[in-house]
Simulated assay, not measured.
Amino acid sequence: MGILATASLVIWLWLVLGQGMFWRTDVRLPPAASDPLHWPSVAIVVPARDEAEVLPLSLPSLLAQDYPGEAEVYLVDDGSSDGTTALAHRLALQQPGLPLTVTSPGEPGPGWTGKLWALRHGIALARQGGPEYLLLTDADIAHEPDSLRKLVAAAESGGLDLVSQMARLRVASFWERLVVPAFVYFFAQLYPFRWVNRPRARTAAAAGGCVLLRTDAAVRAGVPDSIRQAVIDDVSLARAVQRSGGRIWLGLAERVDSVRPYPRLADLWLMVSRSAYAQLRHSPLVLAGTVAGLVLVYLVPPFALAAGLSAGQPVTAWAGGLAWLLMAGSYLPMLRYYGQSLTLAPLLPFTALLYLLMTVDSAVQHYRGRGAAWKGRTYARPSDA
């Protein structure tokens, strides 16, 4: 146990000091030095499948955008059965603002995920009007009135081809408070925002809930066609834009919020497990390495501390305790960002254990033929499609 504890401590020293300062939460939308002389036109594309529950909280916020240039909203109903289309029309009548077009693409074509099929249809329709930018935003995302203005100003000022904000997720229930901040923390650990935002960066990522994309950059990258099979479409989109020579930026949101509730652990479990194994490229070897890594990094420290104290092994106890302290300390900024009690920080090993089990369950569901299931659809791995 002493060797494992020491290894975990070394890893945490490297993560805190060498992993792009992933634990900091100060990467926010860069302010523009001045407003653009010309406000470019924007098409807002919203894929939606059975979103009647959240649409009253999100769609009016898009229609009410205070944007100086031309903008239009395209809501793409991806085969909803809950009256999403009719509700969208009613909301548009109740909320005067940006013009709204509601359309439906039909069932996804072979090799397409539902969301990307909807985006393809919406982008093709929107491009008939020649917009200079596309705002791709999920149906559960609510925007403050100046959100679009600030996104476009940042893109224009910074010469960015893709600007993405990680929407602030809901944290109301006990399980949301325990799991959601850790979800964003783990994402930032995998894709440190500072690394993503460097010129000529090798790390690419985006947050699919809010992506502002130059239309010509989308054309160069061939999206969404070039990523049509992607389950984790936001990261795939960022990689496609980066590989085609585009500049990308990713940060935490201040004025963009997800309104989708995840009140039960089962809801959060589904959110994570539906794509976790796809993140690991459906590889049993990568899964085994991930499980081993999660155990070493997150579970060994508290066990080492307890074992060292009970067995009278001070080196093991100190190594485990310091690793746990570094872990909890690096989690504090994310808890502050979400306005949560800092007493949740020492519970991060337990939350990591939940994510480990969700990841294993994702692999199990994949081999049972139920992997990457979402709202009535199941997607095969790309090579099987």
Rank of each mutant, 00 (worst) to 15 (best):
W12D: 06
V16R: 05
L17Y: 10
G20E: 05
M21Y: 07
D26G: 12
D26Y: 04
A43E: 08
S58M: 03
A64H: 09
A64I: 03
Q65E: 14
D66I: 03
Y67M: 02
D78L: 08
L87W: 14
H89N: 07
P96I: 01
P99W: 14
V102S: 11
P105Y: 11
G106M: 12
P108H: 12
G109F: 05
W112K: 12
K115N: 11
K115A: 06
I123L: 15
A124V: 01
G129M: 04
G129Q: 13
L135C: 10
E144V: 00
E156I: 04
G159K: 07
A167Q: 13
R168A: 06
Y185K: 01
L190S: 15
R194F: 02
N197Q: 12
A204K: 01
C210F: 03
L212N: 03
R214D: 11
R214L: 13
R214M: 14
T215H: 10
D216S: 15
V231T: 04
D233T: 03
D234V: 01
Q242Y: 04
G245V: 01
S258H: 14
R260T: 07
R264C: 07
V272C: 00
V272A: 02
Q279R: 04
L280R: 01
L296S: 08
V297A: 14
L299S: 11
L299H: 13
G308K: 08
L309A: 15
A311H: 11
G312R: 09
Q313I: 08
W318Q: 06
L325D: 08
L326G: 04
L332T: 02
M334P: 00
Y338M: 11
Y338R: 09
A345D: 10
F350E: 02
M358A: 14
R370V: 09
A372H: 12
G376Y: 12
R377M: 06
R381K: 14
